[in-house]
Amino acid sequence: MSYICFEKINKKFGTNHVLKDIELDVEKGQFVTLLGPSGCGKSTLLRCLSGLEQVTSGRIYLDGEDITAVTPRHRGIGMVFQQYSLFPNLSVRRNVAYGLKLKRLPKAEIDQKVEEMLSIVGLSDKIDQYPAQLSGGQQQRVALARAMVTAPKVLLLDEPLSAIDALLRKSLQIEIRRIQQQLGITTIYVTHDQDEAMIMSDVINLFHDGKIEQTGTPEQIYTRPATRFAATFIGNYNLLDAKDFNRAFGTAIPQPEVAVRPEIINLSRQAVAKGEGLLVAEGKIASYISHGNLIRFSVDVNGLLINADVLFEDKREFAQGDQVFVTIKEDLVIGLQ
C-alpha cells in the first residue's frame, strides 16, 4: 500500500457530486500536485484528506492507517491555506509555536524548533513581529513554518501562492520546493496554475469535473496529454480532428483527434520535401503574437489555423502574409483518447 491511498472517494454537497470515485496513491516524500481549473474538486479532495471535509463514500489511508473517520486534529497533517491564516493576535514566534505547545513540549525545545524552522524559511529576523507587520509572501512563509514545525506526516498546501504577486510567487515556488526536498516531507499541493505545477511537482494529477483526468510526471503530462482536456489545459496545443489533419497535411490518421505542440512545429521559407516520418504543409502567416522569448505565428494551412512557436533570437523571421512551409515530425503528433 502507498503512503497515502485514496480509495473510491466520493464527495457530494447536496446534489452536487464534487468528487467521483477518486483513486489516488501518493508515495512517501513525494511532492504531488493536484492541478485543475476552479471547481474541479482538487481543494475538496485536499480538505477530505485533512479531515476538514468528510467524504460521502470511500476510504482514506495514511501510512497504513484508515483515517477516514479520524478528526483533523488527530490526523497529524499540516496545512497551509489559500488566504493568510496566521492568528493576528499572536507574534510570529507564538504562531509557529502554537502546534508545539499543544503537544506539550518543553519550552526550550519549542523555542529551538521555532527558531530552526524560521531560519529555514528565512524569517529569523521577523520572530517578534505580528502578522500585520509582514508582507503577503512573508505571512505565507510563516504559515509554512507553522505547518511544518510539528513534523506532520503530510503537508497540504491549498493554493498558498494565489494571493501573491507574480514575481514573488515564482521565487516562493522554488523556495517551497527547496524546503520540501530539504525536509523530505510528503507534500500535496493544489493549484490551478500549470506552470507552478510543472516547476514544483514530482507527480501531477490533472483534475477535471471531479475526476482525475491524467496522472504523470510534469514531463509526461506535458509531452503526452492523454485527452483533449489535458492538451487544452496543460499547454497551447494545436488540436486537430482526423478530417482537418488530413486536409492540412494530406495524411490519414487512425485517431479521431490529435494534439501538436506549437514549439515542435518548424517554419521555413524554403520548400521542404516530405520524407520518412515528416509531415509537411504549405501555408501563409495569418498573424503573430510576441511572448518575449518567443513569437507565436498563426499559419493558415488550407483554411486551418495552426500555431507555431519560434524562438525570438534577433529579429522576427516572418511577416504577415508570408508564404511558409510547416514541418512536423510525425512521432511528435499525439493521438488523443
Partner: peptide
C-alpha cells in the same frame, strides 16, 4: 477576521 479559516488552521494544528 475570516473566522472559519482561522478555526480550520487552529484545528489542523491540533486544537
Amino acid at each position: 477576521i475570516n473566522m472559519k479559516m482561522l478555526l480550520d488552521a487552529a484545528e489542523m494544528l491540533g486544537e
